[in-house]
């Protein structure tokens, strides 16, 4: 539905990908781990190899959790846009079809956080 306006209402998107100096925004959340402020947001080069996320940005955001070092990335399952999704770890973000402001979630079965409340 168009916005109700007194004249033509057209403005640029404030977070268009061109504004991120060659990077694109990627959101990556870790299911069943609520220790953090929510889902991490990263500006990343589209050519970055997917598996470089693990020891880089994801470790920065999530390694304070005792479960993090136990993650076997070959057994992790992924969601993209809340739908099951299978990345190719050896390919780049772009080759995996990831676009600006995509949101991923990863699930680590058997590692369900602490205290039985997914903390």
């Amino acid at each position: 539905m168009p916005v109700a306006a007194i004249s033509e209402y057209k403005f640029p998107m404030n977070d268009a990908v061109e504004k991120f100096h060659g990077n694109q925004l990627l959101f990556v959340g870790w299911d069943k781990h609520l220790m953090f402020y929510g889902t991490a947001a990263y500006p990343l080069p589209p050519a970055m190899k997917f598996s470089d996320l693990f020891a880089g940005p994801l470790a920065m955001s999530y390694s304070q959790h005792p479960d993090f070092e136990k993650i076997d990335w070959s057994k992790v399952t992924w969601l993209k846009g809340n739908q099951p999704w299978k990345p190719d770890y050896d390919k780049s973000l772009a080759e995996n079809g990831l676009v600006h402001q995509d949101c991923l979630r990863f699930q680590t079965p058997g590692l369900d956080g602490m205290f039985g409340i997914c903390f």
Partner: peptide, 27 residues
């Protein structure tokens, strides 16, 4: 560490959980 995903409308970091499941972050 690092910065969070925000809601495009209310602008809060999305730390809320799903209304029916307090162990699941809202997406």
């Amino acid at each position: 560490k690092g910065l969070p995903r925000l809601c495009q409308v209310c602008q809060l970091p999305i730390f809320f959980t799903e209304p029916d499941d307090p162990t699941q972050l809202a997406y």
